[in-house]
């Protein structure tokens, strides 16, 4: 089992290297896209600067807290899309049949599908997070490294959610626009203060749209570390990842079964 795991990890590493090389060969483009991404993030953050300039605080949350949330959301999303933007191609691949080139391979199709595309502009999101943490949230060095680690965990949950959203295409025809909307909704929910939300929305944030696990719990951990909360976060990561793989596998079986009929 250990050997199988090592083989899988080296396969994933090879795919990541291939994506890295693709960005490196035309490095100016990723750099320019990333710079624009950082700038647009800054423009959007200015909305909150304006808001807290007038309002000062909302249920104890101030601009520094929103900067923490914003940076965490940006780095999380950036990590997921830079590494595995192929998640957003699942629906299209199912629709046009190009998923069959992944199904024909001896290995599980999901890693290759996820790593088939890397979003260069997401580098800007990855960079935005640390910038916001340092310049607007004024985190300590320990908190900085803690946030980076928490971003990786949150990125796994985000990626798992994307796999489930875009796997809707296995059951629903022309599901891509709906999947994209769910993706955008999840991003929106990570960019809004979550402590002020009504119970219904909080329930959604800790279930079908796990923005609460991506942002709220990590910030809670950062403020007031506790092992039970960390266990909940890690448990959620395992649950969402397993669920994503299961949903994808069921979808693939359905796809193969339906195609056999024709």
């Amino acid at each position: 089992m250990g050997q199988a795991l090592c083989k899988q990890l080296s396969y994933i590493a090879a795919l990541l290297r291939a994506n890295g090389k693709a960005h490196y060969t035309e490095w100016k483009r990723p750099l320019l896209l990333s710079a624009f991404m950082v700038f647009q993030n800054f423009l959007f953050f200015l909305l909150w600067v304006v808001f807290f300039g007038a309002v000062r605080q909302v249920k104890g949350w101030q601009l520094e807290d929103v900067a923490l949330m914003f940076g965490l959301g940006a780095t999380t999303i950036g990590l997921a899309l830079f590494m595995a933007d192929g998640a957003r191609t699942i629906a299209l691949a199912v629709q046009d049949g190009s998923i069959e080139s992944f199904l024909a391979k001896p290995r599980h199709p999901l890693p290759a599908l996820l790593l088939s595309r890397s979003n260069a502009a997401s580098l800007g999101d990855i960079v935005s997070g640390p910038l916001w943490w340092v310049f607007f949230a004024h985190v300590t060095p320990w908190q900085f490294w803690g946030l980076l680690g928490l971003s990786v965990i949150a990125a796994v949950i985000f990626l798992a959610s994307l796999v489930m959203f875009f796997s809707l295409a296995f059951w629903v025809q022309r599901a891509e626009p709906l999947s994209y909307k769910l993706f955008e909704i999840l991003i929106t929910m990570t960019m809004v203060p979550q402590n002020v939300q009504p119970m219904g929305l909080k329930l959604a944030m800790f279930s079908v749209l796990p923005a609460g696990f991506m942002v709220f719990l990590p910030i809670t951990l950062l403020r007031d570390f506790s092992w039970p909360v960390l266990a909940v976060l890690l448990g959620a990561t395992v649950v969402y990842s397993s669920l994503a793989v299961w949903v994808f596998n069921v979808g693939v079986r359905r796809y193969i079964g339906v195609n056999r009929l024709y």
Partner: peptide, 12 residues
């Protein structure tokens, strides 16, 4: 998406 945005910011 419209509903989520409105619900979320109404909370704020």
């Amino acid at each position: 998406m419209y509903a989520v945005i409105l619900l979320a910011y109404a909370g704020v």
